[in-house]
Simulated scan of single mutants.
Amino acid sequence: MHLSALYRYPLKSAIAEPLQGSAVDLLGLQGDRRWMLVDEATGRFLTQRAVGKMSQLGARYTDSGGLTLSAAGMPALSVALPAADQNLRGVTIWKDSLRVPDAGDAAAAWLSEFIGKPTRLVQVPEARARTVEAGYGEPGDRVAFADGFPLLLIGQASLEDLSSRIGRPMEMLRFRPNLVIGGSEAFAEDGWKRIRIGQTDFRVVKPCSRCILTTLDPLTGERSADREPMTTLLTYRKQSDGIMFGQNLVPDGAGHLQVGMAVEILE
């Protein structure tokens, strides 16, 4: 088995950034989901679930930790990494409330024009990161702005199994994984507890519950008229707490990943 693809999402719910290699820290891939959009009035997080056009929003991570924003018909905008303890804004993501640095008025104006309503851009320093979902992590396990855990893994064979049942190819990016594993059997990842990729160890802590976001075409943002892949997933991947596809991971320490690295099942 090997790491067949690697994806980073610098801005939560914006366009994926394919990578050939990445450093790994305690929050996942370096730069992954460290930035987020929030409603200016409420501080509530924004994603493609409610704002489908975020699928057309580009956000590339820079070496300095900043972002470069891009969208059709708009000039690109460079956003500097804000100071970790200045211009703090109260935000809410799922059940978590926290105070994190605001990226400033220029970014807010650019994004408000794109989104169509007053929007702020925020960033999470490691010291202000959330704890992972209760009952699944260990003391000290943290997550940036990903939904619940630092990393999401999907087996390539699992996607191929789903596509064959639907009768047409499904794009991997509908599921927004960080790590794609080649060479395993379909849904083999369901039985893994600990894995090693290269020299970096990971705990496999919880299946990923899927939502309506998977029905959006990752290239166009258009919703599937037949509600696929959710319609088919419902027939064979439903559990008591949701429709499961992929596995959430927590890294055990820092490391480096490179596409092509061997994957070893430790437990």
Rank of each mutant, 00 (worst) to 15 (best):
L121W: 09
V122K: 08
Q123R: 08
Q123F: 15
Q123G: 02
P125H: 09
P125Q: 07
E126T: 14
A127H: 14
R128E: 01
R128W: 04
A129K: 03
A129V: 09
A129Y: 09
A129W: 07
R130A: 03
T131R: 12
T131A: 15
V132K: 05
V132L: 11
E133Q: 14
E133T: 02
E133A: 05
A134R: 12
A134Y: 03
A134H: 11
G135F: 00
Y136L: 05
G137A: 11
G137L: 01
E138H: 10
P139I: 07
G140P: 13
D141Q: 09
D141F: 09
D141K: 03
D141E: 11
D141A: 08
R142D: 01
R142N: 03
R142K: 15
V143L: 12
V143Q: 07
V143N: 05
V143W: 07
A144I: 01
A144N: 03
A144S: 15
F145Y: 15
F145C: 04
A146W: 01
A146Q: 15
D147L: 06
D147N: 12
D147C: 11
G148I: 01
G148M: 04
F149E: 00
F149D: 01
F149I: 00
P150I: 04
L151S: 01
L152T: 09
L152V: 09
L152A: 06
L153F: 06
L153V: 12
L153Y: 05
I154E: 01
I154G: 07
G155T: 12
G155E: 12
G155W: 00
Q156M: 05
Q156C: 04
Q156T: 13
Q156R: 15
A157G: 12
A157C: 11
S158V: 10
S158L: 11
E160V: 10
D161W: 07
D161Y: 09
D161Q: 14
L162A: 12
L162T: 09
L162F: 13
S163N: 07
S164R: 14
S164L: 08
